[in-house]
């Protein structure tokens, strides 16, 4: 017991440092240590299974949405594309956007493929059966829900509006909340890419 006693001031100092987080400043929310590393097995737009290992070495931007999404998803994906375009040239190929559709009933692989292609070639469209999606959402402390369909069968889907950023090794690093400008996102992504270039 007594041998650990001198460590207490160090621990407290570390905790305080963690609270202020002055050594690294991000526009997004730093989620290092709060969330588990990137891990999933979903279906790609070609029908083949896709895992986190397929994009290892890249910085991954994970986003949950659905292709019939009226505003949030297109805005977010557009902002992400613009952010990546603003990056210094050498980093642009280091990013992969993972768009996970939580509406597998409507989002067939074909539909998903044409949707993500619209937002650039570094966007991967993914989906799965609902239970697998629920598991993945739970792992990242998020969820989704379906509204009652209207007369023409359209329904709204509630889903996370944030982008989860994982570094090259798959560690959770940042949560980009809605409201960040592409410039701010770009700054964060540059900092992340610089910090993790091996």
């Amino acid at each position: 017991m007594n041998r650990t006693l001198p460590l207490w001031p160090v621990l407290v100092a570390l905790m305080l440092a963690g609270c202020t987080g002055k050594n690294e400043s991000w526009h997004g929310k730093d989620i290092s240590g709060l969330m588990p590393e990137l891990e999933f097995q979903l279906q790609g737009t070609n029908g083949q299974p896709v895992t986190a290992a397929d994009s290892k070495g890249n910085i991954r931007l994970l986003y949950f949405g659905f292709t019939s999404c009226p505003d949030v998803c297109p805005t977010t994906l557009t902002d992400l594309r613009r952010s990546v375009h603003q990056l210094p040239e050498q980093y642009r190929d280091d990013f992969t956007t993972l768009f996970v559709s939580v509406d597998p009933r409507r989002d067939t692989p074909e539909r998903l493929a044409s949707y993500v292609n619209f937002f650039g070639d570094r966007v991967v469209g993914l989906t799965a059966e609902e239970p697998a999606l629920r598991e993945l959402a739970k792992r990242y402390r998020t969820t989704f829900g379906y509204d009652e369909p209207d007369a023409s069968g359209n329904y709204n889907v509630s889903h996370s509006s944030a982008v989860y950023v994982f570094d090259r090794d798959g560690n959770a690093r940042l949560l980009l909340r809605p409201g960040l400008s592409p410039e701010q996102i770009s700054e964060d992504l540059t900092q992340l890419a610089q910090g993790s270039r091996s």
Partner: peptide, 13 residues
């Protein structure tokens, strides 16, 4: 408390 907005609600509300 925007975390519920960020992480998605159990149903759209």
């Amino acid at each position: 408390y925007d975390v519920y907005e960020v992480c998605g609600r159990a149903w759209p509300m």
